[in-house]
Design a protein around this nucleic acid. Structure first.
Length: 462
RNA sequence: GUGGCUAUGGUGUAGAGGCAACACAGCGGGUUGUGGUCCCGUUAUCAUGGGUUCGAUUCCCAUUAGCCACCCCA
């Protein structure tokens, strides 16, 4: 608790103990002592401070607005899920599950994990609650924290926030296109001018065939590969295509292309997605090397970037998504197609901050209530409630005693009017109203204060 | 997970082996009850622990955290 420091603080001598008076020994927890690490946020976690909130509010509002416009219903799933949900849903050998998950065994012996993304949870909810009996497709959205045990960096946190939209139960390519349009509108609505990279991974069979072709091609070039790329060749061959190794550019040129291996249906599907995007004028780029880090994607995949220039920068992806026609079945549901996207709110927020570094101050007020003396303070306390109940935007600093300090605060909070109530006014049943622009003052009847102020603010009174 | 860089008040910075400086913000005040300017005062366990030294905030080591590149992704 902060309190006014009316007494001069004891002169600080050496050592930590002089810093604060000793806490009573009754406390079960010992006070923080010299030699202890200062208590701070856990690695990779962060506080969203009051000054961050305007940006987050903006994003939440825009996501909600898009959900309304496009008919998505909100769903909130738990942060903690059965670990096997993510093994099955996201993929056992993906980096996300293999090395980036917070997971542990509960005292009761359940193996649980903090969600690294929300699509698997939403799909689980779809199956668990029999949403296949609802009119299809089922459109769901959510917003909240995700957790990945990654090494923190700018734009990369261990707890980060996503807004996700999922459309389950419809295989038509118009859904893929519209999801891209929704995410585009969301980002545009926030004032960004993003571009999207799109690709198609085909069905699992064509994807596998392509992967094999790729592996045999690169096996032939094995001697030219870096150590890192050799590992990729074994673990995740598709990743070879966006390797940053210098010699990869020429090797890539000769490599088999994903489009050539797409099955006919996926190819036709992809063509239609692109036609729809052309129709609406979404600024997309084809990227045959775009592979997403989750196993469940089939056919369309896409990834958003703040602008076309900084795609190569690390942590520049603002979000992405794609089609996951196998996921529901993977989780024990009937074969059901689905598609969705997620946006990284932390990264979008930092863009918004760049765009608009000074968000409007939220502590502005129409009227400020200043008081003097114990009687005035008591009276003002009650009057504040009257104003507040009447719906007026009113501020106070009842803990301050000097009028000067209160006037300073009134000024800082951009009050149009300051009402002053001192001992004299209480006895007279009046109040002083000061116009903060002109500095002129008048005396009003304290009983009519609310009415008078409403009139001054141009509000109707009845 | 791998390699590298960094760490000084609330914020942004300066500094040097021997009293830690500046700006902004904060708090208090400038004679009794009036703001925006001005003036004064005040606000630092120099990240944590250890070592070297007569003396370390400064040099060394470890820890922690942040950042950068990789990895990966949002």
């Amino acid at each position: 608790m902060s309190s006014k420091q009316s007494q001069p603080m004891q002169k600080r001598s050496s050592g930590f103990s002089a810093h604060k008076p000793a806490l009573p020994e009754l406390l079960t927890n010992p006070p923080l002592r010299k030699g202890m690490h200062p208590i701070q946020v856990v690695r990779g976690m962060r506080d969203l401070l009051p000054s961050d909130q305007p940006y987050w509010k903006q994003m939440e509002d825009m996501a909600e607005r898009m959900a309304m416009d496009y008919g998505y219903a909100r769903i909130d799933t738990p942060l903690i899920e059965d670990y096997s949900l993510f093994i099955r849903g996201v993929g056992k050998v993906t980096d996300i599950v293999e090395k980036e998950m917070f997971h542990w065994e509960t005292p009761g012996g359940e193996h649980v994990g903090l969600r690294p993304e929300s699509t698997a949870s939403v799909a689980r909810a779809y199956v668990q609650h029999g949403m296949l009996n609802l009119p299809q497709p089922v459109k769901l959205w959510n917003i909240g924290p995700m957790f990945r045990y990654d090494r923190p960096q700018a734009g990369r946190f261990r707890q980060f926030y996503q807004a996700s939209f999922e459309c389950i139960g419809e295989a038509d390519p118009i859904v893929d296109a519209q999801l891209i349009i929704v995410s585009w509108n969301l980002l545009k609505g926030l004032g960004l001018d993003p571009t999207v990279k799109v690709n198609s991974l085909g069905n699992p069979e064509s994807r596998l065939n392509y992967k094999n072709a790729l592996v045999s091609y690169f096996r032939g070039k094995r001697s030219q590969l870096s150590e890192e790329d050799k590992k990729r060749l074994v673990k995740n061959p598709l990743r070879l295509l966006d390797s940053k190794e210098p010699n990869m550019q020429e090797l890539k040129a000769e490599a088999p292309q994903m489009v050539d291996w797409l099955d006919e249906e996926s190819k036709a599907h992809f063509m239609r997605v692109l036609e729809y995007l052309d129709e609406v004028g979404v600024p997309y780029q084809l990227d045959p090397y775009l592979v997403r880090g989750l196993d469940y994607y089939t056919k369309t995949v896409f990834e958003w970037f703040a602008n076309s220039n900084d795609q190569e920068l690390a942590q520049s992806a603002l979000g992405g998504g794609g089609r996951y026609d196998l996921l529901i079945e993977l989780l024990g549901g009937r074969p059901t197609p689905g598609a969705g996207f997620s946006l990284g709110l932390d990264r979008i927020a930092s863009r918004l901050k760049e765009l608009n570094p000074t968000p409007p101050a939220k502590d502005e007020v129409d009227i400020f209530l200043a008081q003097l003396g114990e009687m005035g303070r008591k009276k003002a306390l009650g009057l504040f409630e009257e104003f507040r109940t009447a719906g007026l935007l009113v501020g106070e600093a009842f803990a301050k005693s000097s009028l000067k300090a209160q006037m300073e605060i009134a000024n800082r909070r951009k009050a149009k009017w300051t009402i002053v109530i001192g001992q004299k006014e209480v006895l007279d049943g009046t109040a002083i109203v000061r116009d903060m622009d002109s500095g002129t003052q008048e005396i009003i009847d304290a009983k009519k204060a609310v009415h008078e102020m409403k009139k001054k603010l141009g509000l109707h009174t009845q």
